[in-house]
């Protein structure tokens, strides 16, 4: 899996989660049902990462960081104090779905 493939904006479709596998769908094309809040991961071309999470007042709040490919379908997501580093493993990916597992 190459670096370019996870680029774009993916939003957590938590209704589809299976165990520890989290299912993300394309932010702008998938018809998400209403929810109190959803996480969004936007993987930029140059390794920049924008993570959007529900804030304390339920408004989406953006946290900036960056991402790097580690190989073996693993990626390190790093950021500021607001977005502490974590490693994810992509377990499945098509144009319409991104399934990840937190390591």
């Amino acid at each position: 899996m190459n670096q370019a493939s996870i680029q774009g904006s993916w939003t957590h479709s938590f209704e589809e989660d299976q165990g520890d596998v989290q299912v993300y769908r394309p932010t702008h094309s998938f018809a998400f049902p209403p929810a109190r809040g959803r996480d969004t991961l936007e993987f930029g071309e140059g390794g920049e990462l924008i993570k959007q999470v529900p804030g304390p007042d339920d408004r989406p709040r953006s946290l900036r960081g960056n991402w790097t490919a580690l190989g073996m379908n693993r990626f390190r997501l790093e950021g500021t104090m607001d977005a502490p580093g974590q490693v994810i493993e992509v377990v499945e990916q098509t144009t319409s779905v991104l399934k990840i597992r937190k390591i």
Binding site: P34, P56, D58, P60
Partner: peptide
Amino acid sequence: GLLGYAQF
């Protein structure tokens, strides 16, 4: 898909 938001 936002249900609502508040102001503290």
